[in-house]
Amino acid sequence: MPRILSLQDAIADSVHDGDTVAMEGFTHLIPFAAGHEVIRQRRRDLTLIRMTPDLIYDQLIGMGCARKLVFSWGGNPGVGSLHRLRDAVEHGWPQPLELIEHSHAGMAHAYAAGAAGLPLAILRGYAGTDLPRVNPQIRFIDDPFSGERLAAIPPLRPDVTIIHAQRADRTGNVLLEGIIGVQKEAVLAAKRAIVTVEEIADDLRRPSPNSVVLPAWTVHAIVAAPGGARPSYAHGYYRRDNAFYTQWDAISRERETFLTWMRDNVLRIPSSPPPRARG
């Protein structure tokens, strides 16, 4: 059964230098508070996995936490580039970043294979693209039944997966709703899972018998982190702060403004969610 921990203790306990870490959440329920705690604890040489790196990985990369990135789309959605990701790839600042690049379909299948305990993921994908040329993990096999040529890639098996969810009960069962992305697969594929939640409640308040619930025994640690997905959002709790996503473009464009923002809004503010956009 999971332990209910503070954010500091959960990260200190489960995330180590050199670990392979997946923080998932497809636009929705992105675990920003947990990512910020990883930055505050100055983890190094992480292999970061995430379909859509988003602002949280821009921040982790810019603060020098990452050695490698496994991903499929690295932009600021609807706004433009992730400038810290680009600076690392184009100029090696603050350190070089190795890329393991996939498509969304590939990543989704690789997480599912990880959750299923399979040695590979198979999909109808990557045909004709240049991705197999730059990512040697993308291979092709012939289906023994039909002969169709299919893509094969290794499963994703993070040392630790971190997600944010709406609620947990006091036993540690977790409820997710809305855009649920790849979080269930990412948790089941991982050796350890940390779930930050908006609230820990007596009753999980499942909306339906078919609700997406992670049983307590699939989770390593539960952390109460209200607002922990800001500036992304938590369906039923708060909206996406699109204004902040837009402001991030200017904040992150230059190294100095980025470092100043991180110092003022992350490093100096223990375990609190990032501030809301002004204006």
């Binding site: 789309w73 690295g74 932009g75 580039s81 184009e90 690049e101 996939h102 498509s103 969304h104 994908g125």
Partner: peptide, 14 residues
Amino acid sequence: TRLPGGGGAPEIAS
């Protein structure tokens, strides 16, 4: 210039 990447597009296209 490093652009965002493929996302869903490679398999959307196929």
